[in-house]
Simulated assay, not measured.
Amino acid sequence: MVHAGIQPLFPCPLLHCRRRRLHFTAMASSSDDPIREWILTEGKATQITRILPIGGGCINHANRYDTDNGAFFVKTNGYPEIGLSMFEGEAVGLSAMYNTKSIRIPRPFKFGSLPRGGSFIIMEFVEFGSYREIQSVLGRRLAEMHKAGKSEKGFGFDVNNTIGSTPQINSWSSDWVEFFSEHRLGYQLKLALQRFGDSDIYEKGQQLIKSMEPLFEGAVIESCLLHGDLWSGNISADKNGDPVIFDPACYYGHNEAEFGMSWCAEFGAAFYRSYFEMMPEQPGFERRKELYMLYHYLNHYNLFGYGYRSSAISILRDYPHIC
Rank of each mutant, 00 (worst) to 15 (best):
D318S: 03
W176D: 01
R18Y: 06
H254Q: 08
G149M: 00
M261S: 13
N69I: 00
H300R: 15
S174D: 03
G5P: 10
S130T: 14
R107L: 09
Y202A: 08
P106N: 07
D158A: 04
F24I: 14
G56S: 08
A312T: 01
S130H: 12
K44L: 07
G218Q: 04
E127N: 05
G260Y: 08
Y79I: 09
P80A: 10
G56W: 06
E203H: 06
N99M: 12
K289L: 09
G70Y: 06
M212A: 00
L226M: 02
A71F: 12
C264W: 01
P248R: 14
A91F: 08
G241V: 00
C17F: 09
I245N: 03
G89Q: 13
T67I: 06
V137M: 11
P248C: 09
F24H: 12
I315T: 03
I322E: 00
F157N: 02
F246Y: 10
M212K: 04
F155D: 08
G268Q: 12
F111T: 08
Q206T: 08
N77G: 03
S223I: 01
W263G: 12
F271R: 00
G117H: 00
Y202C: 04
I39F: 09
M278N: 07
P80G: 05
D247C: 09
K110A: 06
H23P: 04
M293P: 14
E286H: 07
A270V: 10
L215H: 01
A96E: 00
P34D: 03
D32S: 04
V137G: 15
E281Q: 05
G284F: 01
A312C: 08
V74E: 05
E286A: 11
